[in-house]
Amino acid sequence: MDLDTPSLTHSLLVDTIYVFSKDQEIKLSADTILTAFAIPVDPRLTETKFVIRHNGLYDTLVLGYTNQTIVLSPDCGSAIFQKNLEVKYSTFDSVRVVTNQLLTSAKVNIEIRL
């Protein structure tokens, strides 16, 4: 999932992002000031939980989605993409789904307001 720079954004000091996948807890260290960041969803699940540490605070975001596999070609093999993206749970003040398909062409999927 990518978050891009909307017209009215505030910079955010993102310290660490925890991704709770099917069989492991993945810790992504950022420790930098961001207006947008990318977080990975687990393709084996239909929802993924994220805990984002920013400015010394912790916020939780749970995203639900549907997986669909396509065969690109016998040369390129199979690929999976997610659609029907929705916010299942959030402790952020406001979270809005902008584009509900996780595609590389979709620059912004979710807009978070603090």
């Binding site: 996948s21 990975p40 393709p43 084996r44 997986n67 596999t69 093999g77 199979s78 999976i80």
Partner: peptide, 18 residues
């Protein structure tokens, strides 16, 4: 059906089936 190995950071060598 399709079976394949998914490799996209931070996930690696996931055995996928659909």
């Amino acid at each position: 059906r399709t079976d394949y190995i998914f490799n996209e950071p931070p996930f690696s060598n996931l055995a996928m089936h659909a």
